[in-house]
Amino acid sequence: MSTRFALRDRTAIVGLGATPYVKRGHSAPQTLEELVGKAIIAAANDAGVAVPDIDGFAYFAGGFDTGYLMETLGIRDCGFTASLTGSGGGSAGAVGLASAAILSGHAETVVVVGAVQQGTLRYGAIPTSYAASPESSFYQSAGLVGPGHMFALLARRHMHLHGTTRDHFADVAITVRDNAVGHPTALMQKPLTRDEYFAAPMISDPHCLYDFCLETDGAVAVIVTSTERARDLKQRPVLVHASAHGGAGEWARSIYWMDMPDETFASSGHAAIARRLFAAADVDVGGIDTAQIYDHFTSQVLMQLEDYGFCGKGEGGLFVASGAVARNGRLPINTDGGQLSGGYIWGMSHVREAVEQLRGTAHHQVAGARTALVTGGPSNVPVSGLILRSDR
């Protein structure tokens, strides 16, 4: 078997657990480790496996302590523990990391976990916490104090090159808000009108308040094992069909250095990941039934749709304006409200929603959904993508 196809459908997500999503700071007095532990226990119970039988950990962010989790949860032995770098950019790829551990024989039952607790440190201002260096001085001195300011430059360039407008960003914000309204896990339950969008305060031109993701506390965990074993467990398996992480050298540090070529600058940096992901899959973009697109900013949703080939370069705005990404469109996205209106768990909420869609248990169920794309957050390399498939 070619190494390109070695992953295809040989592992599966069998357990899913999460804590409630709450607004930033409202998870106290729980600790981050407590949130993570609760999500892991819930995922194990969902899978029908004993918590002490977990023998692998795959992370992408959060700085979790495997030894602490083993002691706290009574886990007997660990054969694998590793983390992708890239913060939210690795959220989709961490599932592939777990699959690689299983296929290489290092572990049998791997938990992938992501969690957020923005108490003293707000992710929206995280660059201000970085130590002074020639690199950090470059963007801090320019007033780029948060990712929203940095990505605003990419958004403005996309508008200049391709005629994208704030109306297109509003289309994304309103679409995912429609998905959040009535969803049992979503934080934002009030419909968003176009007038309300344009009346919102400008945070970082062209990004207004509703172009930014939420500030949320919570944890999500999934358990991955071999497909053969998965079929004997409690839940219908969701197969890990393809996974890719990394990125092109021209994207590299991206928003932390801004030296990308012009065409790449006005992008999400996912084009290289998309090529590798679909090369490893037996479906193309036309075979994706739903996509859970990392939506820390509305503008980056448009650019990811382009990079993954759902529309042409520069056509992301027209694509969303056409209604294609609505629940009744040809590519329903972020069907739980996404990170803009549902809850921001650094990308793991998208994995959760994809699993529920393919189990057929989603609140806003996409009829007949058998394949789902999940993307990790555009940021510096690595970024990642994941294709999941139902086992039916």
Rank of each mutant, 00 (worst) to 15 (best):
L69T: 07
L69P: 08
L69W: 05
M70N: 12
M70S: 11
M70F: 02
E71M: 11
E71H: 10
T72R: 08
T72H: 06
T72V: 02
T72P: 03
T72A: 10
L73C: 04
G74L: 03
G74S: 07
G74V: 03
I75H: 03
I75M: 05
I75A: 02
I75T: 03
R76M: 05
R76E: 08
R76A: 04
R76V: 09
D77T: 10
D77S: 11
D77I: 08
C78F: 05
C78Y: 01
C78M: 07
G79V: 05
G79M: 04
F80R: 05
F80C: 01
T81W: 05
T81V: 09
T81R: 12
A82G: 05
A82M: 09
S83M: 10
S83W: 02
S83T: 09
S83A: 14
S83V: 11
S83H: 09
L84S: 01
L84P: 03
L84E: 00
L84H: 00
T85R: 14
T85C: 14
G86F: 05
G86T: 02
S87F: 14
S87D: 13
S87E: 11
G88T: 09
G88D: 08
G89T: 08
G90I: 02
G90V: 00
G90C: 01
G90A: 02
G90M: 00
S91L: 02
S91Y: 02
S91F: 04
S91A: 01
S91C: 01
A92W: 04
A92N: 00
A92Q: 00
G93T: 00
G93I: 09
A94G: 05
A94Y: 06
V95R: 07
V95A: 00
V95I: 06
V95E: 06
V95D: 02
G96P: 04
G96S: 03
G96D: 03
G96C: 05
L97F: 07
L97I: 03
L97D: 04
A98P: 03
A98F: 01
A98M: 03
S99V: 10
S99G: 13
A100D: 15
A100N: 15
A100S: 15
A100P: 12
A100G: 13
A100C: 12
A101E: 02
A101P: 08
A101S: 08
A101L: 05
A101W: 07
I102C: 03
I102W: 09
L103Q: 14
L103A: 10
S104Y: 10
S104H: 13
S104V: 11
S104M: 10
S104C: 12
G105S: 10
G105Y: 09
G105M: 11
G105W: 13
H106M: 14
H106P: 11
A107R: 13
A107V: 11
A107T: 13
E108M: 04
T109A: 08
T109V: 07
T109K: 14
V110I: 07
V110E: 04
V110Q: 01
V110R: 07
V111S: 00
V111L: 01
V111P: 04
V111Y: 02
V111K: 05
V111G: 01
V112E: 09
V112L: 04
V113W: 08
V113Y: 06
V113N: 08
V113I: 09
A115H: 06
A115G: 06
Q117C: 10
Q117E: 12
Q117H: 14
Q118L: 12
Q118K: 13
Q118P: 14
G119C: 15
T120M: 09
T120V: 14
L121E: 12
L121V: 15
R122A: 13
R122P: 13
R122W: 14
